[in-house]
Computed example of a mutant assay.
Amino acid sequence: MNPPTIPVVDVRPATTHFESIGAEPAVTRIVDAFYRQMDTRPEAREIRAMHGPDLAPVKAVLVRYLCEWLGGPKHYSAERGHPRLRMRHAAFAIGAAERDAWLACMHAALDETDIDPAMRDTLMQSFFRTADWMRNNGR
């Protein structure tokens, strides 16, 4: 008589969004496309004006933040501490129009970089919740 078979359980962690979209190179492409959208969309003029002329520093920060937010390396927190997004953006008037412009730029960036449509929809739902929470102006 054979002993009972013990099922093998895979204990590896589930694939993160970071891994499934292509890790840091994909995040960098998304961030580049996002700011390209911000530079060209008329409805994004106000949020683009919240940034300096040189986008390189803010792009680097957004890449680190999104990498961590998507489940990748925690370089953002190691360098800057807790994200404290509302505090870091408190100096900027963020209303529904600014939220919607940011989301439009991000949606277009995800489309431009060929993110899987199901993943794009999942990310956009999360981006909406965060962007809506960032509002600090009743406009």
Rank of each mutant, 00 (worst) to 15 (best):
R48N: 10
R86Y: 02
P4C: 11
E79L: 02
A33T: 05
R129S: 11
A91D: 02
L123D: 03
S126Q: 15
K59G: 11
I30K: 02
S77K: 00
G138Q: 12
L70D: 06
R139L: 15
K59I: 08
A26P: 03
P25W: 00
F34Y: 03
E68W: 04
M124Q: 03
E112C: 09
A118H: 13
T122I: 10
F127I: 05
M38K: 04
S77C: 00
G138D: 14
T122S: 13
N136F: 05
L123A: 04
T40N: 15
C105T: 04
A44D: 02
M87L: 03
L62D: 08
A118K: 10
R41Q: 11
F128T: 12
P7Q: 11
M124I: 08
P42Y: 04
A108V: 03
E43R: 04
T130P: 14
A26K: 09
E112A: 13
M134D: 02
T122W: 14
E43D: 15
D10R: 04
P3E: 09
N137Q: 09
A104F: 05
P25I: 02
W102N: 03
I115M: 01
T113G: 00
A101N: 06
N2L: 13
T28P: 03
K59A: 09
G71K: 02
F34A: 02
P42I: 07
S20M: 12
G71M: 09
A131P: 08
F128V: 13
L103F: 07
A14Q: 14
P57D: 07
N2C: 10
M38Y: 02
P117R: 06
D100G: 08
C105G: 04
R36G: 05
E68T: 04
R36T: 13
V8Q: 12
A91M: 11
R29M: 06
V27T: 06
D116M: 12
D32I: 00
S77M: 00
S126Y: 11
A104N: 03
R41L: 14
S77I: 00
A96G: 11
G22V: 06
M119G: 00
A49K: 05
E46T: 13
E43Q: 09
M87I: 12
Q37S: 13
A26R: 05
T113D: 07
G138M: 11
N2D: 15
P117A: 07
E98H: 10
T5L: 13
R48P: 13
A118T: 06
A96T: 15
